[in-house]
């Protein structure tokens, strides 16, 4: 590339302007994030501040999350979320990988009908079956006790089989010549799966594990509908949302920001770690 200083003047202006524009856009995208980080360290209480930048800085908002259990028990919320996330990610990864592998590699009569059914189910608002699950769980009486956690795990993981597309896109790209060679040597389909495909598929398994682990941290709707007013079983998302309730916002707003920062760190790290597979999966699925 030619050095910038060697450019003709007109081009210099254009290139510089382009960078300024990009910087301005970045500012628009970064300001809310910056603002929430600043708010989490803000010294003055309340949701409204008369200045954009805080006048004093403190760690109290973080300390409050882990010491003040009068209304919100943040450590417990974290624990609930972790518990639900770990259990549901194991189950749903198994479901997703099993379905994706089967639909990608095995050929049987019900294959096309199953894929069409998954597409039709996708057209219903996911929310609709969620409401019905809520009624059903309420009828069994699971909305009040520790069984609420089981219910949440079941709902997060139960229908996971429908979200096979990205993993299937991955399996579609693994060459079939390996399978054929193994089958000529007398391997069964099961052996092909466990001995050949699985070792090659670590990236997609890791991707599925991580994304489904992040699910309960990101989801807010389902947890809110299921938990209702049972504070003991709140996940982080519901808890943080409740902190913005009119009743609590004055006392808890800065701690909300602190909580948001705390959970954004692991979720963000997970996302940045899986981003590559996400992009590949989407473009792969389109190609296949």
């Amino acid at each position: 590339m030619i050095k910038f200083s060697k450019y003709p003047f007109k081009k210099k202006v254009i290139v510089a302007a382009a960078h300024v524009l990009l910087a301005a856009l970045s500012v628009i995208w970064l300001v809310p994030i910056l603002w929430v980080i600043m708010t989490s360290f803000r010294g003055t209480k309340g949701s409204y501040s008369s200045t954009f930048f805080p006048t004093s800085y403190t760690f109290d908002n973080y300390v409050k999350l882990f010491t003040d259990f009068s209304v919100f028990n943040f450590p417990k919320m974290l624990f609930n979320t972790f518990l639900v996330a770990i259990a549901s990610c194991l189950i749903s990864t198994f479901f997703v990988i099993a379905v994706a592998y089967t639909l990608s590699r095995l050929r049987f009569r019900a294959r096309k009908p199953l894929m069409n059914a998954a597409m039709i189910i996708h057209l219903f608002p996911g929310f609709m079956s969620m409401i019905a699950v809520y009624y059903i769980i309420k009828m069994i009486g699971w909305t009040a006790g520790p069984m609420l956690r089981v219910a949440m795990i079941a709902v997060y993981a139960g229908g996971a089989g429908c979200g096979y597309h990205i993993a299937k896109g991955f399996f579609d790209t693994v060459s079939t010549s390996l399978d054929e060679a193994a089958k000529l040597d007398g391997a069964s389909n099961w052996q092909v799966l466990t001995k050949i495909i699985m070792p090659l598929s670590k990236p997609v398994v890791v991707y599925t594990l991580l994304t489904s682990f992040a699910g309960p941290f990101k989801d807010f709707m389902l947890a809110k509908v299921l938990c209702g007013t049972h504070r003991d079983y709140y996940t982080v998302a519901v808890g943080l949302y409740q902190m913005l309730d009119v009743e609590y916002i004055d006392q808890w707003f800065c701690s909300f920001a602190a909580g948001a920062v705390i959970i954004s760190i692991p979720v963000g790290a997970l996302f940045l770690a899986t981003q590559k597979y996400y992009v590949e999966g989407v473009s792969g699925a389109v190609k296949g």
Binding site: L240, G268, A269
Partner: peptide, 16 residues
């Protein structure tokens, strides 16, 4: 810079 905003859970950015 742009991807950073994707990394943060949606509900957090929306509430902000």
């Amino acid at each position: 810079f742009f991807v950073l905003t994707v990394a943060i859970p949606h509900f957090v950015t929306l509430l902000i």
